[in-house]
Design a protein around this nucleic acid. Structure first.
Lengths: 183, 183
DNA sequence: GGATAAAAACTAAGATACTTAGGTTCTCGA
DNA sequence: TCGAGAACCTAAGTATCTTAGTTTTTATCC
């Protein structure tokens, strides 16, 4: 028979790779990729649902790391544009995994810990804009909404027009920045 | 046997209702709801994929109508906040259908016609802000990203914190408005 | 080094879903 | 009235997730 050396991480990586290549995620397809029969996966992952959760957690961790790195040693407009660019870059590089990172899992400590980690750089940079209290929360939500909305619509080719997307993104982030500082 | 009186529209309405109530969309479930066997649906719709398309088109049409109505007789800040409120209201009332309206169908004339119709009120209101040319495109994308991002994250309970969502939304729209008018 | 226990992978099978093929019943128009 | 076509059905094929139970491999302990 021979052992295939499966691990939860390896299975999740394979699943993530398939997703990002646009292949529909099925256990049959993952098993085929690993040269194994579908039931064998159950020794390492908790079914399809558990696999999706693993992929989401790994992706969220990487996204958080990317965002944290992007704002290190930066502040103000520089930090905001850096964060925005890194966020979009991750979403574009992982069109299959990214959406999974954005579905919340209430009551899942592993998820919540990573979700909190991704908010840190946002709060840090917004604090640099002089925001605090409820305004800080509102602003963080606004930034997240704009970035998430843009990369989602872009990923689903939802913009349809010919005008350059890079410029639109920078335009949006610049507008956001102007809006962050109340008159 | 007795005839059930199925129609594409009726089937789509049933599917939309199930989706908005959080029930996973399957032909088996739709057929059960209509007191019919699953294969019977194929006389009226083009499989599951065709049904999803119908639901998306109907939803997009309603969303476009809601948005058009929201800006009628309004201008400037009033129009922007009205549009934003109507958009969010639709998304909250149709948490199952709304996401379907946002996945584009390149080459589908029915979809593209409705998608264009939803852009009209956005362009109209932004023109009122003095925007034109490429700036108009960029601004429309920014508005759409922010609204779509917010309602999506809200629908997936992606904000997690306790601060009032209504106020966050208005804060975001107000910030957007400030950002729309370049210095 | 050999026996044993645990882990890994397998086959077999059940449940549910989408879909097609082909048959039966109803309805409407000539 | 009756024939044609539409509507609905049953039967069956394929794909999927999943569980149960079996076999093989690996590692540990004496």
């Amino acid at each position: 028979m021979g052992r295939a050396g499966l691990t939860p991480g390896g299975i999740a990586d394979t699943a993530a790779d398939l997703l990002d290549r646009g292949v529909p995620l099925t256990l049959a397809r993952v098993a085929e990729e690993l040269a194994v029969r579908p039931p064998s996966l159950y020794n390492h992952i908790d079914g399809l649902e558990g696999l999706v959760r693993l992929v989401a957690l790994d992706g969220l961790e990487e996204l958080a790391e990317v965002c944290r790195t992007a704002v290190m040693g930066r502040a103000g407009s520089d930090a905001l544009h850096g964060l925005a660019a890194a966020y979009r870059e991750y979403a574009r590089a992982h069109p299959g995994v990214y959406p999974l990172t954005q579905v919340t899992r209430p009551g899942d400590p592993d998820y919540e810990q990573r979700a909190a980690r991704i908010l840190e750089p946002v709060f840090a940079l917004l604090t640099g804009f002089g925001l605090g209290g409820d305004d800080l929360i509102h602003a963080a939500r606004a930034v997240r909404s704009a970035l998430h909305g843009f990369v989602t619509l872009e990923s689903w080719s939802g913009f349809g027009l010919e005008i350059d997307l890079d410029r639109s993104y920078r335009w949006m982030v610049a507008a956001l920045e102007r809006g962050l500082t109340p008159a």
